[in-house]
Design a protein around this nucleic acid. Structure first.
Lengths: 224, 224
DNA sequence: CCGGGTCAAGAGCAGTGCTCTCGGTATGGC
DNA sequence: GCCATACCGAGAGCACTGCTCTTGACCCGG
């Protein structure tokens, strides 16, 4: 291994270390984490961190991409064979489990956007990863006849939905894309509602209630 | 009008003015608005604002309560007579319209919680107001037979749901409460997804797609 | 062995939330 | 009508933030 790559490796390790500490700080400071505090925890000057990330936003972007990827991996790992309802619910619970384990990273990607922050195009790729997991499960169910397609969707919306399907190379009609998207948004909303405190002092049986909503999503997607 | 109440009125007006300016700043700074900037816009020293709000969090709380109330009022104003599906969808669109008109206030109440901020108990009252609108619409539909109750829910979750119904004086069985809550969470998630940018570069026909989701929620709530 | 690239450190700027003190003004009791 | 009192605004100040710039040290390749 040449010296240059050794240097590069050290740099990569340092970058990972900064991200790890920043992720820890995410838990207490939320999206407006303190770069100086991160540097303090690493035992180096705040200005040194700028050698690795040009700005706080760039660090945030790195954390966001990592979070999308980690969620995608978690969902993909939960893809099991079996009946549609079971596959869908298993993936859904995997998403919730990941969110409960990494609540602040969930807030980073699905919470209200950081005021001054503008997400670069780099984040859209990892973002669709988790949705594709559900899309494939639904497409499989439609193929086997376990789920119906639903009433056709035409017009401008139908055209858009068809374009989305084509863009991710998913052979599905617009109405299936719409159902998948709607179901995902419901899942996303259910997890956010739980994490963001809307169920506080209201529902303690969170997993049970989440499963209730997952069954609702399954029924909606599969309905004729 | 006595002198004392005149003083109180001046104070109340000043308080409202501060909140109005803070609401404007919410649009650019998000949840971490600058108290100093608000004071600057008002042409007074930052320390003077502390005569009206003991801290930035207290100002935020006031804005949150106002936002919940405004959303509740908007939803209540959209309650119309008619068939269940129309009533529900009208209220749903009213919620979305309000959110589109006040995106930053929506983010304040349904977005990721502000890091250091802890919502006091004062906010739970106004928060349920909008949900009650939908709950009453669903309860009416169940009463007229337009909507079914669905499979009974027992166990711990059933008990909790029954407790909620009792708490808000709504004569509805647990499964109806669960359906209402799930539908509301779906609406909430759909609006948040649209506002928080998850539909960017994906779906432009937002109102159409939202209505698609509203119809899904209606079907879910009414299904046998 | 030494020049160029990389890195960390420190000072500094403008901004933040919040506290304290200091004067001025209006209020309410006598 | 007078005066103590409560209220209110302004300013200075503290500790903190993101970020920039300069300075000096290090290491690696030619």
């Amino acid at each position: 291994m040449s010296a240059a790559s050794l240097r590069a490796r050290v740099r990569a390790e340092m970058t990972e270390e900064i991200k790890a500490v920043a992720r820890r700080h995410l838990a207490t400071d939320g999206a407006n984490l303190s770069l100086r505090a991160v540097a303090r925890d690493l035992g180096m000057a705040s200005s040194a961190v700028y050698r690795y990330f040009a700005s706080r936003d760039e660090l945030l972007t790195a954390l966001i991409v990592d979070a999308y990827d980690a969620l995608g991996v978690a969902a993909e790992a939960a893809v099991v064979p079996g009946r549609f309802a079971d596959r869908f619910r298993t993936a859904g619970h995997a998403v919730r489990d990941w969110a409960l384990a990494h609540p602040h990273e969930w807030a980073l990607i699905y919470g209200s956007p950081v005021p001054g922050y503008r997400a670069p195009a780099t984040t859209v790729g990892p973002a669709v990863r988790v949705i594709l997991v559900f899309a494939r499960i639904v497409a499989d169910a439609v193929a086997t006849g376990e789920a119906q397609s639903g009433a056709p969707i035409g017009g401008a919306l139908g055209g858009e939905l068809a374009g989305i399907a084509e863009h991710v190379a998913l052979p599905a009609p617009p109405q299936v894309v719409a159902r998948t998207f709607a179901a995902w948004i419901h899942i996303c909303g259910a997890v956010s509602a739980e994490l963001f405190g809307q169920l506080n002092n209201t529902i303690a049986e969170r997993r049970e209630f989440f499963d209730f909503q997952l069954r609702a999503a399954v029924a909606f997607v599969a309905a004729g």
